[in-house]
Amino acid sequence: MQKFPQFLFPFIALSTALSGQAAKAPTTDPATAAPKTIELAETGHCAEALPALSGITRKQADKDLKRRAGLDGVRCAMGLGRFDDALEFLRTLNREFPTDPDVLYLSIHTFSDLATRASEELARSAPSSYQARELNAEAYESQGKWDQAGQEYQKALAKNPDAPGLHFRIGRLLLSKPNPPADVVEQARKEFQAELKIDPNNAGAEYVLGELARQDQNWDQAVEHFSRASKLDPAFGDAFLGLGEALISSRKFPEAIPPLQTAVKLEPANPGAHYNLATAYSRSGRKTEADKEFAIHRQMTQKEPAQTPAQQENPPANPN
């Protein structure tokens, strides 16, 4: 099991070492209170400092002190196991300093640490639950251990055959595996269909079935699935784009225009949405609108490098 990322809390060890020693209480002089509280926290006296840190973070006018108090507050609260307090400090920091690298870095590690703790708790309290199996499966999947992931998903399914999301994940796993068997698409299709029987509102499953139909050149089926996906999730830009592309492929150019217009609204930075909308306009005889969309697409593609292997001019600076 992964240990807590101790390097984030170098002062916690110190705090533990000093736990038997008496610490000075924070001063009440407003001019010196904040720096002294911060010093207290940074020398490991978290329990004493934490209540005052909260006040400084909320009320302190000096931005630098406010930021330092917030960062120390997160570290102290996590070290003391007061996770609600840690999250409150983080909320304040992210509101006040949304682009600060220290704040973002600490946020990532705090959430990461909380996720680790929750997964440990799941493993301790309900090790045989389908949720634990599913989490294991996801872990294997993210490590590229496809077969182990598949086995864990099957175990989760055995525990709870009606659990929503499991068939979807199994289907996606099948399609992601390298060197799949020849009938992998059919196997995956069955999983997505099974998912929809359990959860008819799963827009993702409808979308993937649409893509599979599109790759089979089965335009009518692709249109049906993409239409349902876009109705289930009206913010699902890719579903509208898929619907438009399928309609274009079946040469229904005027019908492709409305979903593609929606795709452009939902994903204005997606060059593919503009390109397909332009194509639909162009082949419907709407030349002016086509030219406008083609121009937007051209601008976007000129800015965006082509999809090519990860190769960069000049290496990053050697960290050593």
Binding site: R172, S176, A182, V185, G204, E211, D238
Partner: peptide, 15 residues
């Protein structure tokens, strides 16, 4: 979620 399209691209060679 973000790579819904990307992972689909990988299946094209399956058949």
């Amino acid at each position: 979620l973000q790579s819904r399209r990307r992972f689909l691209a990988s299946i094209l060679g399956a058949a």
